[in-house]
Computed example of a mutant assay.
Amino acid sequence: MSADTAQADDVLWGQWMLQAQCGDRSAYHALLRAVTPYVRAIARRYVGPGEDAEDALQEVLLVVHRIRHTYEPGRPFKPWLATIASRRCIDLLRRRSHRQQHECGSDPDFDAATQVAGPDESLARVHVADRMRDAVGALPERQREAIRLLRLDELSLREASSQSRQSEGALKVACHRALKTLRRIVIDKGHLHD
């Protein structure tokens, strides 16, 4: 792609985004169709080809949709989009790495816990899950939200902060307090072992 073509794309994409910000759905759809190959190429560069790149593409497009109001008309569009795409891909790589670090190999406790359970064990697990759900549900709202975003949804602090409109520090504190409370309620008081 020549520099002239790249610059023309940048100008056109910026115009479409401005129109989309003003409510023009056809311009927005044209923009999404046009940027898809560009974002896919960025995703492939970070996460490799295949399903991971397609997942990254979809996540980037969702983020663009959520934060399209932050694009400033008159500014270059491609760098704005490339920054979003690369940051999202890095977050996905972090999450993938986090999952891989926490996957269990041949840990005997893990192997025993994942074997097919009999009716008594299955019922006990259901009770444990119910107690855990109740314990999380009893947390204050900000702590519940911090647990959901940071632990269950595995968002980065930056993403969780943006989504919750809480500062990263407030989220860290809320998550720490929630985990401390859950540990005290669920484990220290023996609620899981009733």
Rank of each mutant, 00 (worst) to 15 (best):
S2E: 07
A3S: 13
D4G: 00
T5F: 08
A6E: 15
A8H: 06
M17K: 01
Q21T: 03
Y28L: 01
A30Q: 14
A34L: 00
A41E: 10
A43C: 15
R44M: 08
R45N: 13
G48P: 04
G48D: 01
D52V: 05
D52F: 08
A53W: 00
A56R: 04
L57C: 07
L62V: 08
L62E: 12
V64T: 07
V64L: 05
R75Q: 13
R75T: 13
P79G: 00
A85W: 05
R87E: 10
R96H: 11
Q100R: 10
E103Y: 06
C104M: 11
D107N: 03
A112H: 10
V116T: 06
V116D: 12
P119I: 15
L123T: 05
A124K: 11
V126H: 08
A138G: 11
A138H: 10
P140L: 11
R142D: 15
R142M: 06
Q143N: 06
L150A: 07
D153K: 12
E154I: 01
E154S: 06
L155C: 14
S156Q: 07
L157K: 04
R158L: 10
R158Y: 09
R158S: 13
S161R: 15
S161A: 15
S162T: 12
R165M: 10
Q166F: 15
L171H: 13
L171M: 01
V173A: 07
V173C: 03
R177G: 12
L179M: 12
T181R: 14
L182I: 03
R183W: 05
V186F: 11
V186D: 11
I187A: 14
K189V: 00
D194G: 08
